[in-house]
């Protein structure tokens, strides 16, 4: 999953949230669109391009902070979020 195609890369490099170092500030660039159910969940909790995001923990589940809220997601959802530093 993590090594899937990385579109929109241009001059900045994008990486999935699941590969982001912990406590590193980043910004959401795009979302993986293949799975509509996944996409819906990410949209619902407000993960959309342009949102600043920070990964806080990756085991046993991924925990990230967006704004002042923290969410926990599994690997599938975490690797559907692409970010740039």
């Amino acid at each position: 999953m993590a090594q899937g195609p990385v579109p929109f890369s241009g001059e900045v490099t994008c990486l999935p949230l699941s590969s982001l170092p912990v406590n590193q500030k980043a910004e959401v660039t795009h979302l993986e669109m293949q799975d509509p159910q996944r996409l819906k969940k990410l949209i619902a909790i407000g993960v959309l391009p342009g949102s600043p995001i920070t990964l806080l923990q990756r085991f046993p589940s991924y925990v990230f902070q967006i704004g002042w809220s923290q969410f926990s997601v599994d690997r599938g959802l975490a690797s559907a979020i692409y970010v740039k530093l």
């Binding site: 159910q37 969940k41 909790i45 923290q70 969410f71 926990s72 997601v73 599938g76 959802l77």
Partner: peptide
């Protein structure tokens, strides 16, 4: 059936 996916606000 489809595998579940997990998201939850903390």
């Amino acid at each position: 059936g489809e595998r579940p996916s997990f998201y939850m606000e903390l």
